[in-house]
Nucleic acid binder design. Structure first.
Lengths: 114, 114
DNA sequence: CCTTCTCTCAACCACTTGGTTGATAAACCG
DNA sequence: CGGTTTATCAACCAAGTGGTTGAGAGAAGG
């Protein structure tokens, strides 16, 4: 799956089950069983989905006793937001002039290595 | 690949070649051969990538004579940006209070069916 | 100790993906 | 008309994906 980080994040999000898991985790930590409960698939399938999310850096898993708690890590989403916003001038009406666009680009690039 | 539109867009972006094609198209229309030139793969492979981008709604293709010009359609990127921003409160420091967050949620939801 | 609960590992399966090569269609050009 | 350019279609292949079932490891608890 072309191991570059951005591709990993996009690929991880290209599945409704995984996006639903993230939505659930946005409101707090959860165990694997808790995450699997709403879905009509096996716990093993959910475990695989969690592997994908973990490889993409979107969640972190901590073990306590026999439970593995999952927590959402929004850092990759921030990176993604910045990637998408590269194209913002193509649709957004907030850029009235090229100057506005260039000024904003400069602001965004301050300490933000692509 | 689970035909829902959001998944289609994420999946289309989960490939560095396709993202490079979009970056090229951000600076203007291009034909298939022009798009294929920088890549070490066949023109047919690029044609397949363009099919994926078209199904995701990220490009539109118009035919003139023997050329098919490709143009970027940023609308799905806007949708994506809104999707990602659902999680913005989890990382961004611009939300100082819950009130700020809720007020912003209300603004975003005006005419923005999820 | 034995059972139960939680979770992962391993093997397997159908399907998709990203690439190839070869053939074909369509339009221009001499 | 004959050849060249542009792009797609079709068949194929290796590798990956999302699901299954079955087995097993670790910790809690009667």
């Amino acid at each position: 799956m072309t191991a570059d980080p951005v591709s990993l994040v996009f690929a991880a999000l290209a599945d409704p089950t995984r996006r639903a898991i993230l939505a659930r985790l946005a409101s707090g930590e959860a165990t694997v069983n808790e995450l699997a409960a709403p879905f009509p698939v096996s716990v093993q399938a959910i475990s695989k989905h969690l592997n994908v999310l973990e490889r993409a850096g979107l969640i972190v898993r901590t073990r306590e006793a026999q439970w593995r708690r999952c927590r959402l890590d929004p850092a990759p989403l921030r990176t993604l937001s910045e990637w998408v916003d590269q194209y913002r001038r193509l649709w957004d009406d907030r850029y009235d002039t090229l100057d506005d666009y260039l000024r904003d680009l400069k602001e965004r690039s301050d300490g933000t290595a692509q």
